[in-house]
Computed example of a mutant assay.
Amino acid sequence: MARGPDPAPRGHLSSPQGVEKDESPFGSVLPAASLGPAWPSPAFRTVSRLIPKAGDGEGGGRQSGFGAASPAASLGPGVSLVFNHSHASVMGSFLGHTLTGLSFLLLGFAWAIKHPLKFLGRKSKYSLQIEKLIYWVELLEWGGMAVVCSSGALLEQCLLEGPCFRLYNETTHQWVFLNLWQHSTMHAFFAMAGVVGVLTRCKFQIPMGLDHLLFSLALFNEGLLFYTHSSRMSALDQYIHYILLIPIWTGAVCSLFEVWHRNNPILELFRTSMFITQGTWLWQIAFLLWGTSSWDHNDPETYIFMALCYSWHYGSAVLFLAFTYGIVYWVLWILKGNCGGEAMEIQKFNQADAKTYTALLNGSDEE
């Protein structure tokens, strides 16, 4: 009896023979439009983010332009995609993108309240209390950044069979998990900025503005590493990460200006809007690549919608800042109004009492 073709091995995704493949600028293979609008499926998007172990020989992966192992060589006549499920990046997943986005959002929300409060509270009767509160909030911000980012750098190196501070494999002559090294480097730069921020607020002899300078350099470095990020499985994946460079590098330039223009409310609010947008866009990336809905990665209108979607993200961030600014202004006005109203009533009462007392002394029935 004739034997049929062997089924695809476990952990593989097979496509019909003769499927065309397009090479991306980063060496990853892009599926052709003949795969249909449902490509890539949610299952493919999930496993495609996992990083093959460098040098283990599984799947016949070839080396990409930036050194990360790519499954392109396994796309032979049967067009099978091979992935090693045991080696994944923490940030290169749905959970990683959402947690990182949540960190940027929390920091942006804190700034959305702190900066208007610092600006509007300067002439308030509570200015001393507000200044003391902001000091402790900033100390918590920079200290939390140092702790969280240091932990993130160590987790990327040591968990999930990471590189463990090994950059190059002398046996296989291949780089070891450059994706994880990129993530660790991002965290390390933000951790250094956090340490300097804490030391600056602890009255150490540190030049004024050095905290914002290191923070700006950390953002520039983040943008550079995102620009050269490897293992992108589709052009749409690259495109949405390139859009992410807009809030990253814009925030870096804004932080650099704050080295010389410290406590400028315009720069502070603009930087806050960039951080909120970066956080929401990371969530957008997570749901686009690992969500339940399917996106056509070969439809040009998808790219147009992504640019439009980013505009909505930033517009929403600006509206949120306007809302929080109005809330802070209203709260301070209410507190100042109540105090001012009570003082006005006391002043009127004293004037009326003095007038009555004068009339009684003059023997007049005026009152």
Results as ranks from 00 to 15, higher is better:
residue 81 L to P: 01
residue 86 S to L: 05
residue 65 G to T: 13
residue 144 G to N: 12
residue 169 N to S: 14
residue 106 L to N: 04
residue 141 E to F: 15
residue 100 T to C: 01
residue 94 F to Q: 05
residue 108 G to I: 05
residue 123 K to D: 10
residue 99 L to G: 02
residue 110 A to I: 14
residue 119 F to G: 00
residue 151 S to N: 11
residue 86 S to G: 06
residue 139 L to K: 06
residue 131 E to A: 06
residue 118 K to D: 13
residue 176 V to Y: 00
residue 88 A to Q: 02
residue 78 G to F: 04
residue 76 G to E: 14
residue 74 S to K: 01
residue 162 G to P: 08
residue 171 T to S: 13
residue 103 S to R: 05
residue 109 F to R: 08
residue 160 L to G: 00
residue 115 H to R: 03
residue 86 S to T: 03
residue 118 K to P: 02
residue 95 L to E: 07
residue 143 G to N: 09
residue 169 N to V: 07
residue 108 G to P: 07
residue 107 L to R: 09
residue 151 S to G: 13
residue 155 L to W: 10
residue 176 V to D: 11
residue 144 G to S: 14
residue 178 L to M: 09
residue 122 R to A: 07
residue 92 G to Y: 12
residue 156 E to N: 15
residue 178 L to C: 02
residue 111 W to N: 10
residue 96 G to Y: 01
residue 90 V to S: 01
residue 115 H to T: 10
residue 164 C to M: 11
residue 77 P to H: 12
residue 141 E to Y: 14
residue 153 A to I: 14
residue 91 M to N: 01
residue 69 A to Y: 04
residue 175 W to G: 01
residue 128 L to Y: 05
residue 134 I to K: 01
residue 96 G to E: 00
residue 72 A to F: 05
residue 79 V to K: 03
residue 110 A to E: 13
residue 84 N to E: 05
residue 155 L to K: 07
residue 62 R to L: 14
residue 133 L to A: 02
residue 164 C to G: 01
residue 103 S to N: 10
residue 125 K to M: 10
residue 61 G to F: 04
residue 73 A to E: 10
residue 126 Y to D: 09
residue 148 V to P: 02
residue 99 L to K: 01
residue 146 A to V: 13
residue 155 L to T: 07
residue 80 S to A: 05
residue 66 F to K: 12
residue 171 T to C: 03
residue 127 S to A: 15
residue 148 V to H: 03
residue 92 G to L: 13
residue 95 L to P: 00
residue 124 S to E: 06
residue 175 W to S: 06
residue 107 L to K: 02
residue 169 N to M: 06
residue 63 Q to C: 10
residue 135 Y to C: 04
residue 137 V to K: 05
residue 168 Y to P: 00
residue 155 L to M: 13
residue 64 S to E: 09
residue 125 K to H: 13
residue 171 T to Y: 02
residue 107 L to N: 07
residue 149 C to K: 06
residue 73 A to F: 02
residue 161 E to W: 08
residue 126 Y to S: 15
residue 89 S to D: 04
residue 152 G to P: 10
residue 160 L to H: 14
residue 177 F to G: 00
residue 113 I to C: 07
residue 125 K to S: 12
residue 152 G to E: 11
residue 134 I to V: 15
residue 121 G to F: 09
residue 129 Q to R: 02
residue 131 E to V: 04
residue 107 L to D: 03
residue 115 H to P: 00
residue 65 G to V: 15
residue 114 K to T: 15
residue 155 L to P: 09
residue 98 T to I: 12
residue 79 V to F: 13
residue 123 K to E: 14
residue 121 G to A: 06
residue 110 A to R: 08
residue 91 M to R: 02
residue 121 G to V: 08
residue 170 E to R: 12
residue 68 A to W: 04
residue 171 T to G: 04
residue 119 F to P: 00
residue 137 V to I: 15
